[in-house]
Nucleic acid binder design. Structure first.
Length: 585
RNA sequence: GGUCCCGUGGUGUAGCCUGGCCAAACACGCGGCCCUGUCAAGGCCGAGAACGCCGGUUCGAAUCCGGUCGGGACCGCCA
């Protein structure tokens, strides 16, 4: 076989006219005229028409009658300019065709379970079951190519900037915080487990101690958490860390790379620098930490305006320490009851009580001054509808964030051609855990804004961090922080977190020890490469940018994973399966 | 842990709300025959689903109800 260097089907052009070629590819279509037979031959580069004419190649023409979809063939023949009037403007190869002299069927194919040609993808489970056929579709090969290009540009850019790519282990150590780990039992150390990396976070910090100074890695990360349209258990990060830097260096580097990617992959010149938005404003105005800025619709806090309200639903929430947030829907006065109910349903899906609105149900419980105040705060104009959510702060934000996005979508307010990047910065250092206790928002090594430590005792949740997220069009594309390098500062933070040094040592002793040997100030960022590729490929689904993804229930429908294993394997590992508790009907 | 949507020949859909006219329609695909310039080729003929599965309601269920399995979206979760 010498087809490797052969010309590609999809690359044939008028300039090749007169050449004798060998073509290798898949049969995309057969048009059999009884005498003449046309074959569309497809490879990764595209499709070209092959003509079999019994008058000049009877044997090949006879064989061609037996061809079926997805047969893999070799065709040799001459590239010819198509007869005038027979060109196909829809095909890049449409000016030419190959006059077949010889046909060799390399392999046959069963009728595929779904069409490889054609735009519409079949149901997801079928695509995943036959992923190799799904990937054969031009759209999927195109996305694979986008991903390849992204990786290549990343390598090139960071190499120019003198970054060193370093690989870190897949068999790591489990830590109780963060996402749930995937565990790997140790055979040699029975009863002990490795953990697959959630991210190379601690290792890249050690590489800074090592003096690498500029590190990056396109790293596979694994988290055993619930899936979403933009989340897979296995995903890929561009992990970056540098020394002697501040966040401005991270922003500059990142923006430069993002700008290059957008320019080279989709031909878009991005405006820089990216705007910045504090986490406080983001949650308040957009109800999310990853705002979509392609539409306005700002949420307003109207709790103060209602501090003396008689309306019971607001009274109760406000007295209970909750908040009231409001959003004006431009021209929303014409929303039907049904549409309003759907928005209420959205609020309920976030476990909220619902929504209030005016003009409408809530108006009779509010004073004219309150209504006017809220209208002013939300910028509502004549004919607008004002939606209100009253709840605990975090929940009210979630509800309003969902409502804001839904309203924008329904009313076609999203400027879909725009790329609205922003840095969410600064972020908070601490947050409240489920039990109302203070915990870290990112990880315990995130560097606080030093001046804010002055009020850490009184208002710990207002302490800012040198931490940032990169967002675009409602997606979080990456996040990072500067790290604490000063021992005193680190111990102080542990103290505030109520983490006894002993406890910390158990988990992160290796890191703390390393930091005793001359640690450079450092910080970095990690991007979700899958999401970057999603944006550049124009899909809203992470499964489309991963060659072999898992379903929402974390199964691989093609491999049939996960699967039970041979008891012998379990025994070798010193593992025994617990009987499943019987189902209680 | 929870909420919601979807599941009809190989594929994509219609039918389901308003049960009987549905052993189920349409398109593509598939098989056969005809056809020397098509390119979503065309023409003729044909095969193919008892409606994911289980149970219930009913004289009667693809259609209503419950459960279950599979896929998806979301909330929680994802330092």
């Amino acid at each position: 076989m010498s087809g490797y260097g052969a010309i590609k089907c999809g690359e044939l052009r008028a300039e090749h006219v007169g050449k004798e070629v060998d073509l290798y590819g898949w049969v995309a279509r057969r048009r059999d005229h009884g005498g003449l037979i046309f074959i569309d031959l497809r490879d990764r580069w595209g499709v070209v028409q092959v003509v079999f004419n019994p008058a000049d190649a009877p044997e090949a023409a006879a064989q061609a009658g037996e061809l079926r979809g997805e047969y893999v063939v070799r065709v040799s023949g001459a590239v010819k300019r198509r007869l005038p009037g027979n060109e196909n403007a829809k095909l890049p190869t449409g000016e030419v065709e190959v006059q077949a002299a010889e046909l060799e069927v390399l392999t046959t194919s069963r009728t595929p379970p779904f069409p490889i040609e054609g735009e519409a993808a079949p149901e997801e489970s079928i695509r995943l079951r036959y992923r190799y056929l799904d990937l054969r579709r031009a759209e999927m090969l195109r996305i694979l190519a986008v991903r390849h290009r992204v990786n290549k540009i990343i390598h090139g850019y960071l190499d120019e900037q003198q970054f060193l790519e370093v690989e870190t282990p897949m068999l790591m150590k489990s830590t109780p915080e963060g996402a749930r780990d995937f565990l790997v039992p140790s055979r040699l150390h029975q009863g002990s487990f490795y953990a697959l990396p959630q991210s190379p976070q601690t290792l890249k910090q050690l590489l800074m101690v090592a003096g690498v100074q500029r590190y990056y890695q396109i790293a596979r990360c694994l988290r055993d958490e619930a899936l979403r349209a933009d989340r897979q258990p296995e995903f890929t990060q561009l992990d970056i860390e540098m020394s002697f830097n501040d966040e401005e260096d991270v922003f500059e580097l990142t923006e430069g790379l993002i700008a290059r990617l957008w320019k080279e992959v989709v031909g878009v010149e991005l405006e820089r620098p990216f705007p910045r938005l504090s986490i406080r404003d983001s949650l308040l105005k957009y109800g999310t930490d990853k705002p979509d800025l392609r539409y306005e619709l700002e949420i307003a806090d109207v709790g103060d305006l209602l501090k003396d309200t008689e309306a019971r639903i607001f009274r109760q929430v406000l007295d209970g320490g909750g908040v009231v947030r409001a959003l004006a829907v431009p021209g929303g006065g014409d929303l039907t009851r049904r549409e309003l109910d759907e928005l209420v349903g959205l609020a309920k899906s976030a476990r909220g009580q619902g929504l209030a609105w005016f003009p409408g149900q809530i108006e009779k419980f509010l004073t004219a001054a309150e209504v006017e105040g809220i209208r002013a705060a939300t910028g509502a104009e004549e004919g607008d509808l004002v939606l209100l959510a009253a709840d605990r702060r975090r929940r009210a934000e979630t509800i309003m964030g969902l409502v804001r996005a839904e309203v924008a979508r329904r009313r076609n307010l999203v400027r879909t051609e725009e790329w609205r990047f922003a840095w969410v910065f600064p972020m908070y250092l601490f947050e409240e855990d489920d039990d109302g206790n203070l915990t870290y928002a990112h990880h315990p090594f995130t560097r606080p804004v030093e001046e804010d430590l002055a009020f850490v005792e009184e208002r710990p949740y207002d302490v800012r961090a040198h931490a940032y997220d990169l967002v675009c069009n409602g997606y979080e594309l990456g996040g990072g922080s500067l790290r604490i390098y000063d021992r005193e500062m680190q111990e102080r933070v542990f103290g505030i977190l109520g983490l006894p040094l002993e406890k910390v040592r158990e988990r992160f002793g290796f890191l703390l020890e390393a930091f005793e040997y001359g640690v450079p100030p450092h910080g970095g960022i990690a991007w979700g490469i899958d999401r970057v590729v999603m944006m550049l490929a124009g899909t809203d689904n992470i499964r489309d940018v991963i060659a072999f993804p898992k379903t929402q229930s974390m199964q691989d429908l093609m491999l049939g994973a996960p699967s039970p294993v041979d008891p012998v394997q379990l025994d070798e590992l010193g593992l025994a399966l617990k009987p499943r508790p019987p189902r209680v009907p």
